[in-house]
């Protein structure tokens, strides 16, 4: 198989997956009595219809997916199966609110970095428990990172219902963070905030790290074969695994902090509709390439923005919208696997 074809493959995967989903979703919508044409038109308009829809909805919704998707992609490259981005995101959001609320009079240049750093630190901290269990005792991180999600979710629930509940005491949410802590808008007149730019910069940084630095080479080697890394590379896999956990947790935590500081300005139950899990599909669809994560995150952001419009404009109930999103994820995984099987057979022949 030619090199050119191979570099095209990820794009083909993504396109095929989306096309397959479109067909199945159209059939389902038709069965449910919703004209697929109208529904898809609404979806497209909702995601890309106007400049503002694209920037203020699609890109804003893509931002947490971008950051969590990068977190997953980076960990997976080191063969660290971090399923805990959801929990790390919650930890980050809580820390961000706590720090921002604690600095009421501070200037933005102080409080914003402090908030985001706290979020990243909390995410890394949340990932460090599974990291310690894996490197110290050999406990599989798939289970531990997943279980840490529940701990984080219930902890967040407890805090917003009790200790961190807003002073008004009306809703199960925290106080609003001071305006100085709000992330500045990236494009005036839209709702797109600094967090999106942060995501892009991190994507570039991760890509450079993985492809251009000795450390990134080591990380990829550990991900490809820990035994070969130790014997051929004469370096220990363990520090690399730690780095992957901590960096991944920090980026996922940052996603929570960015969401709080950029969009919601407070923490409440159900802050994330499962971004940390959708992020796995985002990362896999991007073939764990940080730059491609930018694209796939925007695709999923569009799906989310368009899904809302489909509900509102075409009258498709929310459960259907969610179902279609789930279909995309399934299609991506299925198409990705079959492409891998096809290409590996092709390259051996």
């Amino acid at each position: 198989m030619s090199t050119r074809f191979r570099t095209l493959t990820p794009a083909l995967t993504a396109a095929t997956a989306l096309l397959a989903t479109l067909v199945v979703a159209a059939a389902l919508l038709a069965l449910g009595g919703y004209p697929p044409g109208d529904a898809f038109a609404a979806l497209f308009r909702g995601a890309f219809g106007t400049w503002d829809r694209f920037v203020s909805f699609t890109l804003v919704r893509a931002t947490p997916l971008l950051l969590t998707g990068l977190a997953i992609a980076f960990a997976f490259r080191a063969r660290v199966w971090n399923i805990g981005a959801e929990g790390q995101l919650h930890a980050g959001a809580l820390a961000a609110v706590a720090v921002a609320v604690a600095l009421p009079g501070a200037h933005g240049l102080v409080v914003i970095p402090a908030t985001l750093l706290a979020a990243a630190a909390a995410g890394a901290l949340w990932a460090s428990a599974p990291a310690a269990m894996k490197t110290g005792m050999g406990v599989g991180e798939v289970i531990t990172t997943l279980l840490m999600n529940f701990v984080a979710l219930f902890m967040a629930q407890f805090l917003v219902q009790g200790p961190l509940r807003e002073d008004r005491g009306v809703f199960n949410q925290t106080n609003e963070i001071p305006p100085a802590a709000h992330l500045p808008d990236l494009i005036p007149g839209t709702r797109l905030h600094l967090g999106f730019l942060i995501g892009i910069l991190i994507a570039i940084a991760l890509w450079l790290y993985l492809t251009r630095t000795p450390g990134g080479f080591r990380l990829r080697a550990v991900g490809a074969s820990p035994r070969a890394a130790e014997v051929s590379g004469r370096f220990r896999a363990q520090p690399v695994v730690w780095l992957a956990f901590l960096a991944s947790g920090a980026i996922a935590g940052l996603a929570g902090g960015v969401q709080v500081a950029g969009v919601t300005h407070r923490m409440y139950e159900g802050l994330s509709p499962g971004w940390g899990y959708t992020a796995i599909a985002v990362a896999l669809l991007a073939r764990l390439n940080p730059l491609a994560v930018v694209v796939t995150a925007i695709v999923f952001g569009a799906l989310s923005a368009g899904g809302g419009a489909m509900q509102r404009d075409a009258g498709v109930p929310e459960v259907w919208v969610r179902g279609i999103e789930a279909l995309v994820i399934l299609a991506v995984l299925a198409v990705d696997r079959s492409w891998q099987a096809l290409t590996s057979r092709g390259s051996r022949g």
């Binding site: 000795p214 080479f217 080591r218 080697a221 490809a224 074969s225 035994r227 070969a228 890394a229 014997v231 051929s232 590379g233 004469r234 370096f235």
Partner: peptide, 27 residues
């Protein structure tokens, strides 16, 4: 050190020759 188990220890199969050579020189 030329290890006995070349496919699992001496090489990363999905790496290129350059990347496998980099093990010796990357640092």
């Amino acid at each position: 050190w030329i290890p006995q188990d070349r496919t699992n220890e001496g090489l990363v199969n999905e790496f290129t020759i350059s990347e496998n050579v980099a093990f010796a020189v990357h640092d």
